[in-house]
Structure formats: C-alpha cells, structure tokens
Design a protein around this nucleic acid. Structure first.
Lengths: 196, 196
DNA sequence: GTGTGCATGTAAGGAGTTACATGATTGC
DNA sequence: GCAATCATGTAACTCCTTACATGCACAC
C-alpha cells in the first residue's frame, strides 16, 4: 500500500494522542490546517486503509450508547511514521492564494483600487496571524509540558510568516500612497490633518 | 457561467500580453506558479469556456505550417477581470507543505534527526528563494518598463517570505544545536576544534 | 427540551494532474 | 539530422470537498 502525506497525518495525530477519527479532524483543524488541510470524508476511509495495512489497530470504545472507535498505532505504524519523518523525498509545496493572484494582476487597476486591494490582502494576513496566536498557539503551548514542542514551533513559524507578509505589504502600501497625488476635497475632507 | 480563479488567471495573462494557451502556461510557470499552479490540461478547456462565454476571442495565428490560436480579451472579458480584481470575496488560502507537516510531528524523532529535518526544510526554502530571485524576478523586472510592476512586486514578496522562513529555521537550528550534549569521539573526531 | 457538539460514515461531484497522442519549428 | 521547444488537445484518474444521512451526549 502506498502511503501519502494524509496517511502520515493520521499516523502522526494518533501518536500525539488523538484516538477517534473525529478527534483527528478536530485536532487537525486547530493545528495542521494551515499547511495541510483535511476533511472528515478523508479521515474515515484513510483510517480503514491504514488498519487494513496493519499500521493502526482499531478497538471499540463506546461512550454510553454511542459507538466510537479508538485507534492506535501498531509497531509497524510507528516504524512507518518514523521512516517518513526521516525520508528526504518531498512533494513540492503547493499554494493557492487568490489574494496574491489578484495582486499579481493589479496593474490593471487605477492606483486607489490597487491600494484597496493591497490593504485587503494585508488585513487577511494579519487576521490569519492573529487567529493562529490566539486560537492555536495557546493549545500547542499546553502540549509543551509533555515533550511535544514542535506543534507550537510550527504554529509560531506560521504566525510569524503571516505577520512578516503583512508588514511587507504595509511598507508597499506606504510607498504607493506617497506616489498618489494630493487627494482632493471630494475624496477626503479638507480638515484632515495633512500628516495623518 | 461561473468564473473561478483559474479563469481569471487566463484573463489576466492575456491582458499581460500572452496570446496562445501554450504561452499562458509557460508564463504562469515563471510567475504565478508559486501561488496558483496551473497545468496545460486546464488551460485549453478553460480558454474554450471563456470564448464560449464571450470573454475572450479566438483567431487563427498559424506559425508556418503549424496551427496556432491567438486569444485576446473582449471588452466583457476586461470588465470581468477588473470586477474580480475589485471584488472582496476570497477563497481561503490553501497550502500543502509536506516539509512543515513533517516538522509538526518531529517530536517523534531523536534530536539529531530533528536537526537534519529542520535543515532540509530550511534548505528547500532557501532554494525556492534563490530560484525566484534568479529565474523569475529578472523577467518580471523587464516588464517594469511597460507600467507592469506588480508581477515583480509579488515575486519579491514571495522570495522574501521564503528567505524569512529560512532564517527563522536557521535560528531554531542554532537553538536546538545548543541543547545537544557534546558530541563524543565516535560521532565527531576528537581533533575537531571545540569552538567550531 | 433544545441546541451544540460528538461521532461515523457514504455518495456525488468538482478540481486538477498525469499520461497519451500528434506534429511543426528552431537551434545546434 | 536530432533534440528541445512550440503548440493543441483529450482521456483517465486521483484527490479532495460538499452534502447527505444518522443518532447519542451534554450543557443550558
């Protein structure tokens, strides 16, 4: 059986303590989502495949009358995970960012609209950084007590990258604003402080 | 007809001067690939769809005995492109990065292997930055003479982000190296300078 | 008692890639 | 002459998402 990154995501999440498919998805949405998104419709069939390959074992773990399965790594699963972590092969990084795509074509816009677009992209970068810092990093930091620091490190790297990008765009914004002719009384009130 | 980001990629590339489907793909591989990858098998059907919707016009443009089509934006196509550039709606950014995924689970590895992994991720970030600076930015800079500066700006932003990420990882590497116990005579010759 | 969250799955469809198929042109 | 590039397209497939279907547990 051929294992792909989503397979290792399952294995890795189980190793970090997730037990059910639902828990894997929930944890992924609060951690790996920013560099490897996952949907529930991927999780369940993938766990079945891994069980079939002997990399995870499944046992009943009912919660009251509600059925639930508890998965855990087998020795073979742990071995496969470690082998992947050590493997140098890498699928090429893939990014799909509609904001950057718009920015790429922004020459078609008049200067004010260019500025508005840059501002929107910058704001969404800032929002992503803030979200990671408030929602994800606190959770990841809690795990640091158990010899598990890389989730927090990766989250910090991601947040710092978004912040860096936002700052870069803020500088660009300032440069383009400086190129604009003085705004007239119609588009901005004359009472605005000229240095604001 | 519903237009998605790939549709606007086509429209935008035509506006920047690409004429054939092949040229769009070639240009995209030297520019938008890093934030919106495209394959030829997407380009041709999409151009047909856009022609059908009246957003691009197609004309024969044979090169010797070899058939070739020249596409250009119609007025409706230009309008659609501008409307999209101004539109605030944004598909969520999507990233799939196997290196970061590995890093996320790196706690499972012994310290030396953690360092090796960080080093690999850092090196691939550096390679991406270098590639953009040597292969993409010079081309984009050439276009700056024709009132087309955003392609170069976006390429610079991308390269700077990769460089920032590589530097961040280099600092992490240094920190983890400082935690390692002194390497013994087996793993490093005793004649190595102790401060190296 | 009701809404939110927990929990597991399937079906259908969309988006995008690889591989295939074909052939002309150009630079070495 | 031969390889790389230009050029257009299709078919099959993979991967992933959305929507559907179902039902229990818990907190308010």
């Amino acid at each position: 059986m051929k294992l792909k990154p989503p397979s290792y995501l399952m294995l890795g999440m189980l190793r970090l303590g997730a037990r059910s498919g639902y828990a894997i998805k929930k944890t992924a949405d609060l951690s790996t989502k920013y560099f490897w998104p996952t949907s529930l419709a991927q999780v369940y069939p993938e766990l079945a495949r891994l069980q079939n390959a002997g990399l995870v074992s499944r046992s009943d773990d009912p919660h009251g009358a509600r059925t639930r399965s508890a998965y855990k790594l087998t020795d073979a699963g742990e071995t496969a995970l470690l082998a992947w972590l050590r493997s140098p092969r890498q699928a090429p990084v893939q990014v799909r960012d509609e904001g950057l795509l718009r920015l790429f074509f922004a020459d078609a816009l008049p200067p004010e609209d260019q500025l508005a677009l840059i501002r929107r992209v910058r704001e969404s970068d800032q929002a992503a950084a803030t979200w990671i810092r408030t929602e994800i990093i606190p959770l990841a930091d809690a795990a640091r007590q158990t010899d598990t620091r890389f989730p927090a490190l990766v989250a910090e790297l991601s947040a710092d990258i978004y912040t860096y990008s936002a700052e870069w765009l803020a500088r660009l914004e300032a440069q383009l604003e400086a190129e604009l002719p003085e705004p007239d009384a119609h588009s901005r009130p004359a009472s605005s402080p000229p240095t604001a």
